[in-house]
Amino acid sequence: MTPKGHSPVDLDSAAPATSRRGLIGALGAAGLAGAAALSIARPVSAAPTSPTEQDKVLLRQAMQLELTAEALYRTAVDAGLTDVAADLAMVFAENHVTYADKIAGGAGFSADTRNDEIFELLEPAFATSDAQAFAEAAIALENTAAATHTALLPEYVSREARKLTASIVVVEARMATVLTHFGDSASSLDDLFISDAEPLDLAAGAAS
């Protein structure tokens, strides 16, 4: 195991980065946290099955995040990743586009727009053929995506949106762990099991 290095996708300029996992905090962690604090526990039994109009606004942002993740992995493949790194990038790209399709399908819109702001911010880190650099960038992406969906989940009213989100979050957590192992980035078991990544404020950065 090797010591953790500082990631090339550290976007947190306002405050010192405490770890690799807090990398995408500059996009506005406070936005979702504030919204989450205002959420009210809803009786699930009374929840509608299909996404509400309010859900669809958030689901569109979630879908755009997934398409952004897919595009970032394709960027890494195009940059010349090989072997296991390329295999992982292709599978994970497919995972994310599948999530985007599923989110869009459930909400009744097309999965056709990524979040350009997030893409442009992270693209330089993913445009690499270096396996370790790729792993560092992708770990941050997966942990942040999982944190973002986790923050969104209590905001959804419908059962379908909540169920789908939970099923995505747990695999994004797995992807982060696999990437941590692949990148030899774990200095302890904590690095495999724990993420302190902050959620993105998608409303602030999402393309409409």
């Binding site: 979050v169 747990v170 957590a173 797995r174 192992h181 692949f182 078991l189 495999l192 099991f193």
Partner: peptide
């Protein structure tokens, strides 16, 4: 759920 998913992934990877 996330923690235990990570456990599972790590056990196989290790």
């Amino acid at each position: 759920a996330k923690l235990e998913s990570r456990h599972s992934a790590a056990i196989v990877a290790l």
